[in-house]
């Protein structure tokens, strides 16, 4: 998204659009991976308030509760991000976002960086620490 902004400011509209498309594809890929991950857990009978999960220790119930809430919320942010990026593409096509008027793209890029920043913390906390 940031590189797309640089392209747009330099007047390279098609490059800017290509980078937004790449971001959308990568974020959909992320959501697909998370879908399979959630499905694997639900297949094991682990989902909020399931019998198997409720039989586990308090710590594990807490972990999976936080895990589902926070990855789920992150997923919602990504879906919102994809919608915003599609909107940005629409505005670029309508010539509402140009190399001189790029505020919307800049702010969407900032939002996207923030979503990325959240994952920087969620990933080690949920996926890595348990391996220690």
């Amino acid at each position: 998204m940031g590189m797309s902004l640089i392209n747009l400011k330099n007047g390279e509209i098609s490059k800017a659009k290509l980078k937004i498309y790449i971001t959308i594809i990568l974020s959909i890929l992320f959501l697909v991976i998370k879908y399979f991950e959630w499905m694997a857990e639900i297949h094991h009978g682990i989902y909020p308030d399931s019998e198997i999960l409720n039989a586990k220790s308090h710590g594990e119930i807490l972990f999976f509760g936080l895990y589902f809430t926070m990855t789920g919320l992150h997923g919602v942010h990504i879906i919102v991000g994809i919608a915003l990026m599609l909107w940005v593409l629409f505005l670029i096509n309508k010539k509402k976002i140009t190399s001189a008027n790029y505020l919307v793209l800049e702010n969407v890029a900032l939002y996207w960086d923030l979503v990325h920043l959240v994952w920087v913390f969620l990933f080690p906390l949920f996926y890595i620490i348990g391996r220690g």
Partner: peptide
């Protein structure tokens, strides 16, 4: 591990 991971983050 938590401290190292958070430091990297």
């Amino acid at each position: 591990t938590v401290s190292i991971q958070l430091f990297i983050s």
